[in-house]
Amino acid sequence: MVQIDRLCKSYGSFHALDGLNLSIEKGELFGFVGPNGAGKTTTMRIISGLLRADSGTVMVDGVDARRDTRRVKEKIGYMPDFFGVYDNLKALEYMEFFASIYGIEGREARRLCLELMDLVNLGDKADAYVDGLSRGMKQRLCLARSLVHNPELLILDEPASGLDPRARFEMKGILRNLSEMGKTIIVSSHILPELAEMCTTIGIIEHGKMVVSGTVDSIMAGVNRQNPLIIRVVGELDTAVRLLKESPLVANLSMAEQELYVSLQSSTASAFSGGIQTENLLQEEEEEAALLTALIQGGVRISSYTREKGNLESVFMQITEEQEAEE
């Protein structure tokens, strides 16, 4: 649905996007995560036709966003991070205004707008003035507005920012519904766990580059593999330490009481710069199994053989810190 190739955008000496590559399939609920200033909004604004890229291409459903902006705009529903509403306009009239932009008028427009307002749980607010609605309601109204022309792609820039927990929960539910309806959705946030709960795929952006992308599970697995193996040994540690030191698979070894912390050569070599590779994961699993077999065959009694697990926050921190360190 969306193909971004080597996208660059600079503001003076500041490189907001530095050769960004991204691919989003039809029907995906894609979470675009990154710290403030990473390039999320710039990317979304370029896709939406609000900003011109310095170089690179953006294709939306096979249409070049730079050459045929109008056609791309018809395929996109965009919700910015900050937006205002009109004074003296009722919620239904607000919706009908945007419907009329797409040539939907009269009864058809009214029926469609009421349906969309129901979809975002605002069916009872049709006659309420827009400027009198709460922040959460305005966000949902803006989402309904972005759906008025039945776009295939929804671009939502931090749709849950500034919302209370209940409104966030409602917003997530609506997005899941839309995803089930077959819409392709790009939703940005700087909070990874918030997106991980609902998104089918995640892309983490840092300094204008895509650091990693894939499903939440694959990203978690990739990061967890970088954590050391924890081997708990029953009895003497000497044999286990000797075997591990002799093994070519082991990169680092440390110990605390009966536990040995082992980093594998393959895990330390696989950084996130290239993204998560399935072949790498399989190879690492093979090496873990080989190491365990060698220890058991060497007479070491093992009570547990596990890997330290990270949470989503630590994953995000780890990935973005790695990028900072590389630069």
Binding site: G49, R70, I76, Y78, F98, Y102, C142
Partner: peptide, 10 residues
């Protein structure tokens, strides 16, 4: 802050 939304329509 309503202009941006208008400009993303057709």
């Amino acid at each position: 802050q309503t202009l941006e939304i208008l400009l993303t329509t057709s």
